[in-house]
């Protein structure tokens, strides 16, 4: 074989081969499992959003959603996580298949008007991103299904100790991915997973 043709083929393959990427692994089903093949799902819920509207599983029918736990007067991690949620929101702003759900864990102070004021300050669409309150035991209870830690702790600034996870839930209410919302690089890795979930559904 002519050396020039051989060299050209070699260069050609070296360019083409790496671009033939394998399709990514399907996203796993996460949560507390009794058996490895279990697909835990989020139980029914009933909360109230920043406009006083009921929010339940029906609200997110045929949508995937990102969710977190926060409170409006939180001086520690919530502002960072909210900033990262906003970044994801802006990334998928025009995609109606993606919704956002932020649970307030300070159900005593975070009234509907306060949640409305908080949402207004973020300039978000009230239909796409729901800030919800409800019964304390319901919100603390469902946090476990989302693999999140929520604890009342008077020694912590703001009075609550909680994890800053952002959790990705599919349209059948299975958790498919999560990230630490206080680390922007971790959020960078979640964004393609959201797109992957959208592409697979």
């Amino acid at each position: 074989m002519n050396i020039k043709i051989f060299a050209l083929l070699l260069i050609g393959f070296s360019v083409i081969l790496p671009s033939c990427k394998q399709s990514p692994q399907p996203l796993p089903y996460l949560g507390i499992k009794e058996n490895p093949d279990d697909k835990p799902s989020i139980p029914d819920f009933n909360f109230i959003d920043q406009l006083g509207r009921p929010v339940n599983a029906e609200t997110f029918k045929n949508k995937i959603y990102l969710t977190d736990f926060f409170f409006t007067s939180c001086p520690t991690i919530c502002p960072i996580v909210t900033g990262q949620m906003l970044r994801i929101y802006e990334h998928f702003a025009k995609d109606d298949r993606v919704a956002f759900l932020s649970h307030s864990i300070d159900t005593r102070h975070d009234s509907v008007p306060r949640l409305k004021a908080y949402a207004d300050k973020l300039h978000i669409n009230d239909d796409k991103w729901r800030f919800v309150t409800g019964k304390k035991e319901d919100i603390f209870g469902i946090s476990k299904n989302y693999m999140s830690i929520v604890l009342e702790d008077p020694d912590t600034p703001g009075g609550f100790n909680h994890s800053g996870y952002i959790i990705l839930v599919d349209k059948d209410r299975h958790i498919r991915a999560f990230c630490n919302g206080t680390i922007p690089e971790d959020v960078d890795k979640l964004i393609p997973k959201i797109q992957q979930l959208l592409d697979s559904e």
Partner: peptide, 15 residues
Amino acid sequence: ANCHGDKGQGLVSLY
């Protein structure tokens, strides 16, 4: 920095 951002950029109208 938690609220006002790493570089003092704030967050929309919230912070």
